[in-house]
Design a binder for these strands. Structure first.
Lengths: 269, 269
DNA sequence: TTCTTCGTTCCGGCTGCCGGAACGTTGATT
DNA sequence: AATCAACGTTCCGGCAGCCGGAACGAAGAA
C-alpha cells in the first residue's frame, strides 16, 4: 500500500529537497533541518555526490545541489504533470472519464485520459490519439479560446488539409457561428452524434472547456458520458461548473509553479 | 571510502536518471534498462512518486519524470559546479591553490577556492570575499577580457567608488596600458607585492586568466604561490599553460552542458 | 593554552529491504 | 469463444545493508 516505500531513498530525497531550496548547507545545518544522524547524512551525501546530484564546495565544505540542467520541463510537460492528478480527482467525483488534449498540427492530440480509471466502459483511445478540430468539443474549445493570430493559422492549415473533417474550415460563416456560440456558452460541444467509435460500442456525448495559463490557452479538457445514461442538458447542468473549476485549478497550478521558479534563490551564497 | 554509499538510494537515482532521458517508460522498459527486479522497481517508483519526483500517466501507466522546475541553475551556478572539480584537479597537479571569481558590484568576488586543500598554508579568504579590480590579477583579467560595453560600465562604477583602490580608474592612461598589457600576455598579474594579508603571513604572488563560455567572460581563475618558494617568471613559465587549459575546460564543459539542455527530448511521448 | 564545535570513523546489532515465485488481468491470436 | 503470452502486482522467508551511538581528530574561539 501507501507505505510500501524505501526508507533509504526517502531520506535521500529529503536531503535533496532540503538542499534545493537553500543553495548550500553545512553538515550541521542539514543535521538540524532533517533530524537525520550525521553518519547517515554522510552516507547519503556520498551517494548523491557519486551520482552528480550534489557537490561539496571545496572552499568551506558547504553542500550544494549541483546544477543539473535538462530538468526544466516544457510548458506542455507541466500541463501533463498537474493535469494528470486533477483529472484523476475529477474522475473520482463524476465517475465519467475525461481527456486532456492540446492542439498539434491540424488536430487535437490527447495527452492524458481517465478512461481507464472510470468505472464506465467507454471507447478507449490512448495517448497520442488525434481528433478533428471542427467536429469535437475539444477542438472547438481550442479554436474559440486561442488568440486571433493562432486561430487564423489553424484555420488556414485546416483549409489545406486532406481530411474530410477539415473541409468545413472553408465555410467561414459556419466557423464564425461555431466560435461565437462556443465562446458564449464557455464550453465546446461535438457535432450531433459524432463519435469516432468502433461498431457495437455505445454512443457517447461530451463537452470541453479550455485550460488557461499565463493568459493564453495551453490545453483543453472534457468529460464524456454515455448518451444512454444522460442527456446533454442534464450532464452540462450537473458537471459544467465542476469541470471548469478543474480547468481553472490546472491553470492556476501552472502559473504558481512557473512563478515559484522565477523567484528561486540565487545560486550563490 | 568511495564505497560508503547506500544501495537503495543509488538505485533510486539510477531510475531517476533513466527516466530523465526518456520522457516516459513502462515498468517493463525500466526493468530492461536498469536490470532491477520488478518488485524493487515498484517500491522505488512508489517512493519517488510520494516525493513528487515521478508521476504515472493514468492513460497508459507510463512512468514519467515529473516536471520539477527550479532545478535549472543559473550560469553562475554552472560555473561553480564545473569549476569546483576542475580547480580541485588543478590543485592536485600544481600543489598551489587557486581561486575562482566573478565580477560583482565593483569588485571581484571569490566563489570557490582550493586554499583549504593545498598543502601550502596560504592566507585564507573564504567564499564571498571581495578583492579590488585594478590591483589584482583576477580583476585585471576580467577587465581586459570582458566586452567593451561592460568595461565602460565597470570603470565608471569604479570612478564613483569610495575605495582608495578604485581611484586609479581615473587615470585612463594607466588603465589602457594595463589592459593592453594583460591582453597581450593573456593573463593578469597583481601590483608588485600587493597582498591583502594579515601581518605575519608570508608574501604571495599569482596570476589570473579568464574563463570564457558562450563567447563571453563568465569568470576568472588564478594560481597563488609563496614568493619565498618561486619567482614570478618561473611560476608563469611552469604553470601558465596548465591554468589556461583548466580555464578552457571549464568553459567547454559549460558550453556542452548548455547545449545538451537545448537538445533535450520533448516532454511528450 | 584550553575549550568548544564540527566533521569523520568505527562497529555490533537489527530491521528494512530483497527478489523469486505465484497470481490476476489485459489484449492479441487462432 | 477459447487459448496464450506478456505484463503488472502481491506475497513472504531470509539475510546483508544499513543504522546510529560513541569515540576520535581537527580546527577555531576564548
Amino acid at each position: 500500500m501507501a507505505s510500501d516505500t524505501l526508507r533509504g531513498l526517502e531520506r535521500g530525497l529529503q536531503v535533496l529537497d532540503a538542499l534545493n531550496l537553500s543553495s548550500g548547507m553545512t553538515l550541521r545545518e542539514l543535521h538540524c533541518n532533517t533530524n537525520l544522524p550525521k553518519p547517515t547524512l554522510l552516507r547519503i551525501l556520498a551517494t548523491l555526490e557519486a551520482h552528480g546530484y550534489v557537490r561539496r564546495r571545496i572552499a568551506d565544505g558547504v553542500w550544494r545541489r549541483s546544477a543539473r540542467l535538462s530538468e526544466t520541463g516544457s510548458l506542455q510537460g507541466l500541463l501533463l504533470d498537474v493535469g494528470s492528478s486533477i483529472l484523476d480527482d475529477l474522475c473520482q467525483r463524476l465517475r465519467w472519464p475525461s481527456d486532456l488534449a492540446v492542439y498539434d498540427e491540424g488536430s487535437m492530440m490527447i495527452i492524458e485520459t481517465t478512461r481507464k480509471k472510470s468505472p464506465y466502459f467507454i471507447n478507449w483511445t490512448g495517448v497520442g490519439y488525434r481528433i478533428p478540430m471542427l467536429q469535437t468539443g475539444l477542438g472547438r474549445a481550442w479554436l474559440s479560446f486561442c488568440s486571433n493570430e493562432e486561430r487564423e493559422t489553424i484555420l488556414s492549415d485546416l483549409r489545406g488539409s486532406s481530411s474530410p473533417f477539415d473541409r468545413a474550415a472553408n465555410n467561414s460563416q459556419l466557423v464564425d457561428q461555431l466560435i461565437s456560440e462556443t465562446r458564449a456558452q464557455g464550453y465546446g460541444t461535438r457535432v450531433q452524434g459524432f463519435t469516432l467509435r468502433k461498431i457495437g460500442e455505445e454512443k457517447t456525448d461530451g463537452f470541453a472547456v479550455p485550460v488557461i495559463a499565463r493568459d493564453r490557452i495551453v490545453g483543453c479538457m472534457n468529460v464524456t458520458w454515455l448518451t444512454s445514461a444522460l442527456d446533454q442538458r442534464t450532464a452540462i447542468s450537473r458537471y459544467l461548473e465542476e469541470v471548469q473549476a478543474a480547468a481553472g485549478r490546472i491553470g492556476n497550478e501552472i502559473d504558481t509553479k512557473l512563478s515559484l521558479d522565477a523567484a528561486r534563490p540565487s545560486a550563490l551564497q
